[in-house]
């Protein structure tokens, strides 16, 4: 029961913050709500027994991505900048009226319910797994799988990341005169 309460709290955090990201107009605030949402996802991973993935989620997103996004938003103008410059608020009426919006909403609900039916089996499996009270560390299994069964994918993704790193360094390097 305790796990389920924690799971529901993490899910609520994720969803509320995700909605807040969309609703907020200030981009810095959106970034912070995104941080909350990503922490909630880490909580979901943790309650489902994926400890390493949960901590990696915090490490990568909170420690790296959100700080970089905050930097990027701050250096490119921050609040109220984009909506004024591109006149998004002015565009909004031309994008639709109440009929188109309600049809779109109906379609979204139908589509959501259908996809929920489709993934219904998946959620059942997950609820069975959460009832395992005993957490087994996934670190060893992950390590074995990564360097034995999936070594090719592992190496390819590391080469890709290295390429991205070198590319970023080259782009950021000051040009020689």
């Amino acid at each position: 029961m305790f796990h389920q309460i924690l799971f529901l709290m993490s899910a609520a955090l994720t969803l509320i913050c995700a909605v807040a990201v969309l609703v907020t107009k200030n981009m810095m605030h959106s970034c912070i709500f995104l941080l909350g949402s990503l922490l909630g996802i880490a909580g979901l991973y943790a309650t489902l027994g994926a400890d390493f993935v949960a901590v990696s989620q915090i490490m990568v997103y909170v420690g790296g991505v959100v700080i970089l996004m905050l930097f990027a938003v701050m250096l490119t103008g921050g609040k109220d900048f984009v909506s004024k410059a591109q006149n998004l608020l002015g565009l909004a009426p031309s994008m639709g009226n109440k009929w188109t919006f309600s049809i779109a909403g109906l379609v979204a609900v139908v589509f959501g319910l259908t996809s929920f039916l489709l993934i219904n089996n998946v959620t059942k499996v997950v609820t069975i797994k959460t009832q395992n009270d005993e957490f087994v560390s996934t670190v060893n299994q992950l390590g074995h799988l990564l360097v034995k069964n999936h070594v090719l994918a592992f190496e390819i993704s590391s080469v890709l990341l290295l390429g991205a790193l070198v590319g970023a360094a080259i782009i950021a390097r000051p040009k020689r005169q």
Binding site: V55, S56, I58, M59, V62, G63, G64
Partner: peptide, 8 residues
């Protein structure tokens, strides 16, 4: 790992 991650 948790300690490094959460202290960010």
């Amino acid at each position: 790992f948790y300690l490094i991650a959460i202290s960010s």
